[in-house]
């Protein structure tokens, strides 16, 4: 870790934070509709993990994936346009907040059924192994996924087939509004992964340095052919589950406590030379441009509505 890298990581985390704050604003102006799941508070996880990847690696994320998409490098303009439902969006306005996709950065969603991405990530890693491509597949999911059968099926396959895959569990303590302690007999999730003989580690998901370093180690291990790794990142979402959530299930004091661990406060404590004002200014321009881009985007013709059901209808 050096100042350059600290600046880079800080920039990405701040970009996610300010981008999503703008999303909330545009949601209340009814420019953005549907579900909007915010990643605010959890930025260190996506930013730290993405730092360790190459452009050849594949990513599967969840419905709370604006942060992952931004950290991976999908242009903020295209993400904002997607939230606006515009044709210039990264899924042409067909996906929305929960279904961001981008072939260029190998970003495979935006899978909005909890655990739905894990089996596909297994298959992607299997294809890399079969074709002897030295690539890694990274799969993000929340701790709520652990309750699904697919989680266990997928972890077993990854270990059994020795696949080049990194599982990143973003444990933010609540599956929508139900606390982990109410749903799991064993709340240490990394232990569950370890029981499948997967190298597994519980880390501080609010500390981007720790996430980046652990991810680098994990990716190195996977690339050298040593099979899957599981990182349980302890984190917290500062905002509600979605725009419809009244947050009746947690204490304000708990939220305040976690806000003290904000990764955006934490990193500059270690790197006092980070020029926050300069980042803010740069990002403010990026966000303004993204909004302008989305505002000026085109609404796809309804005549084209039935395209993209089958490949023969895709204009390539």
């Amino acid at each position: 870790m050096d100042l350059d890298l600290a600046n880079k990581l800080y920039h990405k985390m701040l970009l996610i934070r300010r981008f999503e704050e703008k999303c909330v604003e545009m949601y209340s102006k009814e420019k953005i509709r549907g579900f909007l799941h915010l990643y605010i508070g959890e930025e260190a996880v996506a930013v730290g993990v993405m730092h360790a990847l190459s452009s050849e690696d594949a990513i599967f994320a969840t419905y709370r994936e604006h942060g992952h998409a931004l950290a991976r490098g999908i242009h903020p303009n295209r993400i904002m346009a997607e939230l606006y439902g515009k044709q210039e969006g990264c899924s042409r306005g067909r996906g929305g907040s929960m279904h961001l996709f981008d072939a260029a950065t190998r970003f495979y969603g935006g899978i909005a059924i909890v655990t739905g991405g894990l089996p596909m990530a297994i298959g992607m890693a299997l294809s890399d192994k079969m074709m002897k491509r030295n690539k890694v597949t990274v799969c993000f999911f929340g701790e709520g996924a652990v309750a699904e059968g697919e989680f266990h099926e997928s972890l077993n396959l990854a270990a059994l087939w020795h696949l080049p895959i990194l599982f990143v569990c973003e444990n933010n303590l609540y599956a929508m509004g139900t606390a982990l302690e109410f749903t799991q007999s064993e709340t240490n999730i990394s232990l569950k992964a370890a029981s499948y003989r997967i190298t597994s580690k519980q880390i501080d998901g609010m500390n981007v340095t720790e996430v980046a370093e652990s991810s680098e180690e994990a990716i190195a291990q996977i690339r050298s052919g040593n099979g899957p790794v599981f990182l349980e990142c302890l984190t917290y979402r500062f905002r509600a589950h979605s725009m419809y959530d009244a947050e009746l299930y947690r204490q304000k004091s708990e939220v305040e406590e976690w806000k003290q661990k904000d990764p955006l406060i934490r990193l500059p404590q270690d790197w006092s030379d980070i020029n926050i004002a300069q980042h803010e200014e740069e990002i403010s321009h990026i966000i303004d441009e993204a909004v302008e881009f989305a505002e000026n985007g085109t609404l796809e013709s309804v005549d084209d509505l039935e395209k993209f059901i089958y490949s023969s209808e895709v204009a390539r």
Partner: peptide, 21 residues
């Protein structure tokens, strides 16, 4: 030969197809 994990191995088929298989 897969374990009795219909969801995981069907999803793995989707992922492998995305991966060019």
């Amino acid at each position: 030969d897969t374990p009795l994990s219909e969801s995981a191995f069907t999803g793995a088929g989707i992922g492998a197809a995305l991966g060019g298989m």
